[in-house]
């Protein structure tokens, strides 16, 4: 998978990196059990600080997406643990975004369509990848 980091973005780099890996997993471009580059190697490829990559990897480990091990390095988790409070957390994250959409006069249909499109294209990507592998 190609990881992209945008230096001009408002999002901090570790956050972009973390998001990219989660998106990679959702779209099937990273598979469960797949080995990721070492912290040092990824930092060198992207030209960013070691600590930035380390921070992203640690967050992914805390969230259960990544297994960090001294010997085998960073490996995508085999199964992602259920987080009972995830829906709660998600609605809190969405709250300001939905609020802004309402302020900017976006219709309920458009908002729903947007989420649906994102969701379906990611699932479609994953399905395409699985078909190709077979």
């Amino acid at each position: 998978m190609l990881i992209q980091i945008d230096f001009a973005s408002d999002l901090p780099i570790y956050r972009q990196l973390r998001d990219q890996i989660v998106i990679g997993l959702a779209t099937g471009q990273l598979e469960a059990g797949e080995e990721l580059p070492s912290v040092r190697r990824l930092a060198a490829d992207l030209g960013i600080n070691l600590h930035t990559v380390h921070k992203a990897y640690q967050q992914l480990r805390d969230e259960g997406f990544l297994v960090l091990d001294r010997r085998s390095g960073a490996v995508m988790a085999k199964n992602i643990p259920d987080q009972p409070e995830f829906q709660n957390w998600l609605s809190r994250q969405l709250e300001p975004l939905v609020a802004e959409a309402i302020c900017r006069k976006m219709s309920t249909n458009d908002l729903q369509a947007l989420v649906r499109t994102l969701d379906q294209s990611m699932r479609q990507l994953k399905k395409d990848g699985e078909m190709q592998n077979e």
Binding site: D6, F7, E35
Partner: peptide, 14 residues
């Protein structure tokens, strides 16, 4: 020019 940098996870495995 864009300020995006890229890394390929497949080719930089140790």
């Amino acid at each position: 020019t864009s300020a995006t940098v890229y890394a390929d996870t497949a080719s930089s495995r140790s």
